[in-house]
Structure formats: C-alpha cells, structure tokens
Amino acid sequence: MEKFRVEHLNFHYGDKLALSDISISISDRRITALIGPSGCGKSTFLRCLNRMNDTIRGARVEGRVLLDGQDIYARGTDVVELRKRVGMVFQRPNPFPQSIFDNIAFGPRVLGLEGDLHQIVEESLRGAVLWDEVKDKLKQDALGLSLGQQQRLCIARTIAVKPEVILMDEPCSALDPIATLQIEELMQSLKEEYSIVIVTHNMQQASRVSDFTGFFWLGEMVEFDVTERVFTRPAQRITEDYITGRAG
C-alpha cells in the first residue's frame, strides 16, 4: 500500500534547483532507503516529506507530495499535525537536557495526547528496544546514556506521539558498529507499524535494512527499485558506478 506519493517535485534554494522532477511512491510499512553522494539532494528530499524545509529562507517547492492521498503542501495544511504524523530522527542523537521519562513524555504532553503517560513512555521505550536498559533509571538525565541509547531514546520520543511515518537522516552515522546494528534491528521491528524512510551514506546499511532504494544523483532520482535489484543488478550505469565505488 502506498503511504506517500511524490509527483514531479522540484525544490529550489533561491536560484539553485536542488531537486528536479522527483516522482516516487513510498510504500506503507516498508523501509525505503535514499542513497547518493553528498549534496545530491537526498536529505533535502527527506525534509520535503514533513515540510522541514519550510523555514529555510528562499526555499520553494513545486509539485505535489501526497500523504494518504492528501497534498501536504496544500493551503491550510496543519504543519504541526503533519510532523506528528511524519516524525524525524536526526544524524546525531539530540535528547533534551531532561530525564529519560520527560524526553519521551515531551511530545504527548505538548500535543495533549490522551492516555496514561506512564504507559505511553513504557510502550515507546519498549518499541525502541530500550525499556530493559532504562526502566530502573527513568528519572536520570538522558544525556547520561550512551550515544546508541540516546539515538534509541530519540526514536522512542518520535514514536511516543504515534506517528505513521518515521524519517531518519543518517541515524547511525555517529554510532559504533554494535549500536548501528541495534538501530538496524530496531528498524525491522518498527516497520511492522510504521513506514520508514532513511537517508544513509552507508550502502551496506541500505542493502541490509531496506525494502526499496532510491538513488539520487545531482538532484535527480536516477533509479528507484526494490533494494535487492538495485544492489545486484541496477538498471542505470551511474547507479552501478556509484554502488561499486566508481563514481561519486
């Protein structure tokens, strides 16, 4: 089932065209990886999916981004509600300087979500496979956790507001290999409930975790296909050159 449909998306930073005519369908409850060299537009594209680029001066979007059939760039779209539905995890873990509990409870409190807050916190931490490690120290400062735990905390914080899509912008680039594998395992369990779109520089990671892969090159999506095919027999020469380390 389709979660996002992007149609002829152009993105301008002032005079610069950063994304050109991107059309793609992102499946529900699947992991979609976006790969490509630095500056190719993959993070810009990711941020178009929950309008994180809105605040950039001179930024302009053309085309349509449909979430469950509704254009998120349509006039009158509630951007706060959009970002609740489409959450984001960033490159470096960015917990608030608060307790573990308050980090997770932050979103539900701000959004006034109904339900038992303790239950939401526990469910979110369990969902992020962090509960067993922190259940006895929920009042402790989140910054005392390891980087890998902090990133899982950020994922728990994201799922605490019950999103439908999780965007991940190089979520493992600051983590060691074990913490990276833990996040990757976590992604596999998260995709049972959420659609995930991940930007990664690590092609092995893209090939390990994702169901679909899109390859960006100079602001264009050159190839989009099931991951297995992209990494074994890509259709485009430039994709092959990039993933075999001969371009980019």
Binding site: M203, Q204, S207, F231, T232, R233, P234, T239, E240, I243, T244
Partner: peptide, 9 residues
Amino acid sequence: QQPMARDLR
C-alpha cells in the same frame, strides 16, 4: 571490499 552489483556477480 564489500562488492556490489556487477562486482558481486
């Protein structure tokens, strides 16, 4: 070397 695509084949 973790080859991909044609290299892996």
